[in-house]
Amino acid sequence: MMPTPPITFSPPPTRRQALACTGLTALAGLAALAWLPGCASAGPPRYSVRLAELQQALAGRFPRSYPLAGVLELQLHTPQLALRPERDQLNAVIALQANGLLLQGRQPQGLLDVDFGLRYEASDRSLRTDRVQVNTLRLQGLPAGLSQQLSRHGASLAAKALDGLVLHQLRPSDLALADGLGVQPGPIRVTAQGLTVEFVPRR
């Protein structure tokens, strides 16, 4: 994983905190996060992930295939991600291919366009897709009956197939200092560069 920007906190550093930050600076290349209060000028703690990292993680999880109504199989290729910070969402455009006996050897091509938010899954420290919304789903060259099946069930299938997909996974070392400070991952924000995970007090 690429190095992430340091975390920022608001209180001014005490002498003890300043000494601790000096030690953390020496380990910055390993930890990627500086958790102690006073290590930066202002603001809550944050963890950042760049768009290129998210795209790279998805490349290893595709193509993926899903059955449609028992008569068709949709193959989804690697999504091309785009940031939508104005809506706090990501967009994904995915090339599709259909396979099935009823197609008689043809492999219609198409496109799936979706928007989605994100959530944090504590069980495996992952950032996952959430609230998937299908904008466009089309396949060229389907027989009329299969086209109706796609219209009836395709959007629901696509949303379920992409919901909960892992985009990024934090390492135990990324959270070690956070655990000691009693904070945990909270809201996930979409920025012009990627994702920012804000940390909140542990309940």
Rank of each mutant, 00 (worst) to 15 (best):
Gln148Asn: 14
Asp124Pro: 00
Leu157Cys: 07
Asp130Pro: 00
Gly117Ile: 12
Leu101Asp: 15
Leu111Cys: 05
Gln80Lys: 11
Gln148Tyr: 10
Leu74Lys: 00
Arg119Cys: 09
Leu142His: 04
Gly70Val: 03
Arg106Thr: 14
Arg152Met: 15
Arg87Leu: 14
Phe116Val: 08
Ala92Leu: 09
Val114Arg: 01
Gly70Glu: 12
Ala158Met: 10
Leu96Glu: 03
Gly117Gln: 03
Asn135Met: 11
Leu96Ala: 03
Arg125Gly: 01
Ser123Glu: 15
Phe116His: 03
Leu162Arg: 02
Pro85Ala: 00
Val134Phe: 07
Leu103Asp: 09
Gln97Phe: 02
Ala155Glu: 12
Leu137Phe: 02
Arg125Thr: 08
Glu73Tyr: 06
Leu146Thr: 06
Gln109Pro: 03
Gln89Glu: 15
Leu90Pro: 06
Leu111Asn: 11
Pro143Val: 05
Leu139Phe: 01
Lys160Asn: 14
Thr129Tyr: 05
Gly70Ile: 02
Ala158Asn: 04
Ala95Lys: 01
Gln133Tyr: 10
Gly154Asn: 04
Leu83Cys: 03
Leu81Met: 04
Gly100Arg: 02
Leu72Lys: 00
Leu81Thr: 05
Ala92Thr: 02
Gly141Asn: 07
Asn91Ser: 13
Asn135Lys: 12
Gln133Phe: 11
Asn99Thr: 15
Ser156Gln: 11
Leu81Asp: 07
Ala158Leu: 06
Leu81Ser: 04
Gly117Leu: 07
Gln140Gly: 11
Ala122Trp: 05
Asn99Arg: 11
Arg128Ile: 10
Arg128Val: 11
Asp113Lys: 08
Gly100Thr: 10
Val132Glu: 13
Leu76Asn: 01
Ser147Phe: 05
Pro85Lys: 00
Gly70His: 07
Pro79Ser: 11
Arg152Val: 15
Arg106Leu: 13
His153Val: 08
Leu142Phe: 10
Leu83Thr: 14
Pro143Lys: 02
Pro79Gln: 12
Gln148Leu: 15
Asp124Cys: 04
